[in-house]
Amino acid sequence: MISSFAIPLIAPLTTSLTTPLLARLGVVAVIFVVAGFVKGVTGMGLPTVAMGVLGTLMLPAEAAGLLLLPSFVTNVWQLFAGPGVRALVARLWPMLAGIVGGTLIAAPFIAGGGGAWAVVGLGAALALYAAAGLLAWRFPVPARHERWLSPTIGAVTGVVTGGTGVFVVPAVPYLQGLELSKEELVQALGLSFTVSTIALAIGLAGAHAFAVDDLRASLAAVLPALAGMWFGQRVRGRIGAASFRRWFFVCLLGLGLQLMARAFV
C-alpha cells in the first residue's frame, strides 16, 4: 500500500498542486529513463515497463495518458530504423485493423468503467507476457492461417490494449511466430506498437479520459524516454542480452502479481 506521503509525490503531473512540480517531474523522468533503457536493450518494453510501474502509483488511464507521446516517438524511431515498412504494412494490415477496432471498443474500460478491475487486468497482462517470455513460448504461424489469425490476434490485442494500456499480448508472440528476419521483427513490433498507441489515444479521448492539454504531461516524458533508449542501445552489445531479458521478465512477473494482489488487500 502506498503511503499518504508518497501518493501526492507520485501523482500525475496534472493533479496535486501541493506537491512541487520538480519532484513529480523527477519521478516520472526516472520511470521513463528506465523504460527507455529497457527498450534500447531489448527493442521493446517501454510501454510495458512504464504502464507497470506507473500503474502502481496512479490509475491506469492516467498512466496510459502519460506514456502516449514517449511510446509514439520511440516506436516511430524503431519503425523507420530500417527498410521494408511498406511491405510490412501490406502484410500486417489485417492485424493492425483489428488492433484499432479492439482498442476503440475496450478503451472506456480503462477510462473509468473498470475501476479497480482495470488494475487487475493490467497486472494479468504483465504477468502473462512475463510468463511467455520466461518460458520462451513460440508458436509457428503457417502462412495459410495468417488470413484469419492476423485480424483475430489484432482484435484480442486491441481489447487488451484498450482495457489495460499494455500493447504486447498476444501481438508480440504472434509476430515472433511469423517468418520474419530480425530486422523485420523489430520493425513489425514498432509498427504494431505505433498503431496501438494512436488507437489508445483516440480511444481515451473518445471516452473523455484524455485531452489535448494532457499532452504537456506526456511531452515532458519524451526526452527521458529517448535518453534511456539511447543509453540502452549504447550498452546493448556490452551486456548479456539473454540474462537481461530473463531478469526483465522476472521483474515484470513480480510487478504483475503485485498489481493483481492489490485488488484483494
Rank of each mutant, 00 (worst) to 15 (best):
L122S: 08
R147V: 09
P224C: 05
A155I: 11
L257W: 03
T161E: 00
V212S: 11
G237M: 10
A205R: 01
P140S: 12
G113Y: 15
L135W: 10
S181K: 06
G232I: 15
R246Y: 12
A217K: 01
F248P: 02
A118C: 04
L178V: 09
A217Q: 03
G112N: 02
A205S: 01
H208I: 03
R234G: 05
R216Q: 15
R245D: 03
F244T: 10
I239G: 01
A132N: 03
A205Y: 05
D214I: 08
C251M: 13
L257S: 07
P170T: 06
H208S: 01
Q187W: 12
V195N: 05
L257C: 11
L204A: 08
F210L: 01
I198V: 15
V186T: 15
G254I: 11
G162H: 02
L219E: 09
P170W: 03
E146R: 09
R238G: 05
R236I: 13
W230M: 13
W247C: 01
G162I: 02
H208L: 02
G113N: 13
D214K: 15
L219G: 14
T197G: 03
A217N: 03
V166K: 12
G154K: 15
L128H: 11
V120G: 06
T157D: 11
A155N: 01
W137M: 13
G133Q: 02
L223W: 15
G165V: 02
V141D: 10
L257A: 10
A217M: 04
G190Q: 05
V212Q: 06
